[in-house]
Amino acid sequence: MAYTYFPGCCMHGFARHCQDSLYAVFNALGLELRELKDWNCCGATTYIAVDEYQAFALGARNLAMAEKLGLDLVAPCTACFMILKKTKDYLARYGDLREKIDTALATVGLRYEGKVEILHPLEIILRDVGVKGLKAKVKRPLRGWNVAPYYGCLIARPYALSEGFSLEAFDEFVPALGANLIDFELKARCCGGSLTGTVEEVGHRLVYILLHQAKLAKAHALVTVCPLCQLNLEAHQGKIKRQYGDDVTIPIPYFTQLIGMALGLSEKALGLEKLLVPLDWDVGEKVFAAREPAAA
């Protein structure tokens, strides 16, 4: 299957490693990504704080261009993912907004019909490959690893995931890779988004709550599906450790990095060396050896 790929600004910037691993894993699973030509920033949750109509126009331009290609649109950043879904929903429900956007798009010869489907890569992997299919392709099971999946807000809020999917359904990809699933209670709690940069004392507290809980649950890795959560959770661990006197050091891989590890892809292809908190491949093996000495 081929998909139109909407990287979003972060995948071209601080989340290069997420993009590396996304391409590597999609390639290994026989899925193709074709980057949307001339895509523009989706406006995130920021543009709408200044002008709502223009904010919807940003999303609409991308959707109109993607529609012409006739493939489903993949957005690996959950903010882009939600914004594009929201644009689609609001253009379908608010007639006058739709009229304005249509007029504006027409000035550059674009037309939006509302047909394009917006998907997150996790939905695609589980829909096209499936849990069983993924399990069959695992070459190096992550045995011994305690993995806590963390989804954050925007993948499942405010819009429901595609039919048949819930965060609980998503959790199944962790055991499929051979790792132990930690049922992470805070899997949909906010990481603070841009607050870690703007109102630090609040943003860092929100990150601390998540990291602390993951440590309590004895997780070896907290895996994210959003590049912004990924940066937030790993970039401030040092400051948080000093501020709260609590060692919260834990690697924060993007979910395709973890999948790629189990598929036996190389460290470089997955951008593992670009993580700020290094991921130690041997962690799981040590735990496994301690638990089942004979089998190891």
Binding site: D89, A92, R93, P158
Partner: peptide
């Protein structure tokens, strides 16, 4: 607003 198309979670 027309009736909702995308369901809220």
């Amino acid at each position: 607003a027309a009736p909702g198309s995308s369901p809220l979670a």
